[in-house]
Design a protein around this nucleic acid. Structure first.
Lengths: 200, 200
DNA sequence: CCGCAGCGATACGCGTGCGTATCAGAGATG
DNA sequence: CATCTCTGATACGCACGCGTATCGCTGCGG
């Protein structure tokens, strides 16, 4: 039915998409959601405004797409070591990303945007939930296997770990130091054998 | 030196200030920082735009002042019970405020605004730091007095408790349930005598 | 090497919010 | 009751950003 000649895709299109998405994220990081403008993105990307409107319907569409593309910084699956070690590494990884990455600098914008656009809200909640769930499952697994005893529900422990990280990021000038991760994890998981470590 | 007749202050002025500050906070909660407009506030407060500009220099001045006035919801000084109980009550209080209060609904706006205006940033950081510090001191006191053993540095424990609360508020649809507060506190503080409570 | 798709630049109409100015009337003062 | 401050309404000029349209040019595909 399609008598179309099936022309090869022009490489310029994908190149534009990539450049513009990156510029959009930088703009979100710097200006936030409210002050985000298509014109700033165009200037930052050294691109004509029309190119942006050719590739995305509107401002919101670009923002949502930029976030979704940034999502690809997937959490690396740590599969070596004891469960406690794997948990520590996961927490440490999240702390590092939160401390310094383009995506993390966009989180304030994402929070603000989530209050305005359902599509952003869905993305934000889903993304956060996924990160939290994988940590929860790791903790639950460690408890099931008897490696340690949790001092509270796995999900609550996960929330405390992630919360500590983001509290530093969002509510104070000093981000959470990744080096504190082991201490934080140890505080919430009690090895079955060893006695509790004392802190003077 | 002042030959001024010292006229009594017109009550309408303070009344306007109060009404407009409240409307500004509601506007921040609903629209966020970026979409905040003086004209919306005026409409919401059933007040002329000129009245607002007569009492505040500009948009930022109003926002900063509205936040500072909301700050007055001071944390009640809990002074009864064991230190652990006082900590639990404090955490529970923060959780309740975070779950549902006008001020807490403004936090996304505050975070966004902190990225743009130094005055808002100072307020935000100072306010958060104060809350965190009072919790830290409470924990440190309980450790010093030998009531319990912390499983980590007091400040880190405080960060985990507050973080868990705000993670629920900002990063997922479900706010932190205040009923989880005792479990969270217990997980991070170990009574010196009793054996650790097990969670199946 | 031809033809066309994608490109940057530019200009446009529109809406919106800023911060200012003006003005008549309501309400507090004394 | 006379006075004068504060108030809400309204209009203004300005700047900015949206989303659209147009136009030559560039560089890719065939």
């Amino acid at each position: 039915m399609d008598g179309l000649p099936a022309r090869r895709p022009d490489p310029r299109v994908e190149r534009s998409r990539t450049i513009i998405r990156a510029a959009a994220l930088e703009e979100l990081a710097q200006s936030g959601y409210g002050a985000f403008t298509i014109e700033s993105v165009a200037a930052r990307a050294h691109v004509g405004k029309s190119t942006i409107y050719r590739l995305w319907r509107d401002k919101l569409d670009l923002i949502a797409d930029a976030f979704e593309s940034a999502h690809e910084q997937a959490v690396p699956d740590v599969t070596t070591g004891t469960t406690a070690q794997r948990i520590t590494m996961l927490v440490q990884h999240v702390a590092e990303v939160a401390a310094d990455s383009l995506f993390s600098r966009c989180i304030p914008a994402l929070i603000e945007g989530a209050g305005h656009d359902p599509r952003l809200r869905d993305f934000h909640y889903r993304y956060s939930a996924r990160r939290r769930q994988s940590l929860t499952e790791l903790i639950a697994g460690g408890i099931r296997s008897g490696e340690f005893t949790a001092s509270c529900e796995p999900d609550l422990a996960a929330q405390a770990m992630l919360g500590a990280i983001f509290y530093g990021r969002l509510m104070s000038g000093e981000p959470f130091a990744p080096s504190q991760a082991p201490q934080l994890v140890a505080a919430l998981l009690r090895p079955r054998d060893a006695s509790s470590p004392e802190v003077s």
